[in-house]
Simulated assay, not measured.
Amino acid sequence: MSIDESLIQKIQVQVDSVFAEMKSQIKSLRDQPELLDNTLNSLWYEFYDEFICFGSRLADLHLILPNEVPQLSC
């Protein structure tokens, strides 16, 4: 498996996990719209922050070690 394939696979696992958690929260909080909205906002921004951090680390790492795959969390 090439680095690109490994990286794509790791990103896919993380994205799938976030959306599975969102789906779970939608099912469990559908009768509480305000709490659901806050929970989904929190999950989304946590994912967004981690993804931006990961992208930044990936860019930095490729400048230093072009063949390394960074960890997905900061």
Rank of each mutant, 00 (worst) to 15 (best):
S42F: 15
W44P: 01
S28E: 08
N41R: 08
Y45A: 08
I26R: 09
E34K: 15
N38Q: 11
C74T: 07
Y48N: 12
L36M: 09
V18P: 00
E46F: 11
I52N: 14
D49Q: 14
C53T: 13
I26H: 06
Y48A: 11
E34Y: 15
L35P: 02
F51H: 12
E68R: 15
Q12A: 09
F19R: 08
C74N: 12
L7T: 00
Y48F: 14
V69N: 01
Y45L: 05
S28Q: 06
Q12N: 12
S17A: 14
V15C: 00
S24E: 13
T39C: 11
L7E: 04
D31E: 11
S17Q: 10
L7W: 00
E50N: 15
Q71Y: 09
Q9P: 00
Q14M: 12
S6V: 09
V15H: 04
P66R: 06
T39M: 03
S28W: 01
F51R: 11
E46G: 08
E50S: 10
T39D: 01
S6I: 14
L58T: 01
A59F: 05
N41F: 10
E5I: 12
L35K: 14
H62Q: 15
I3G: 15
E34M: 12
Q32C: 05
C53M: 14
D31N: 12
V69Y: 01
A20T: 07
I3L: 14
F47V: 01
S56Q: 10
C74Y: 03
K23F: 03
E46T: 12
P70N: 07
E50R: 10
E68K: 15
S28H: 05
I11F: 05
A20H: 09
L43P: 02
D16V: 03
I26V: 10
I3P: 14
Q32M: 03
S24A: 11
P33F: 07
K27V: 06
Q25W: 01
L61Q: 11
Q25G: 02
E21R: 10
E46C: 05
Y48D: 10
M1E: 06
Y45K: 11
S17G: 13
M22P: 02
N41M: 12
E68T: 13
R57N: 13
I3Y: 14
K27G: 08
S42H: 14
K10P: 00
D37Q: 10
N67L: 08
M22V: 03
P66N: 02
K23R: 05
R57I: 06
A59V: 06
M22N: 02
Q14N: 07
D49F: 08
L40W: 01
Q9H: 05
S56F: 04
E34S: 13
E34A: 13
S24V: 04
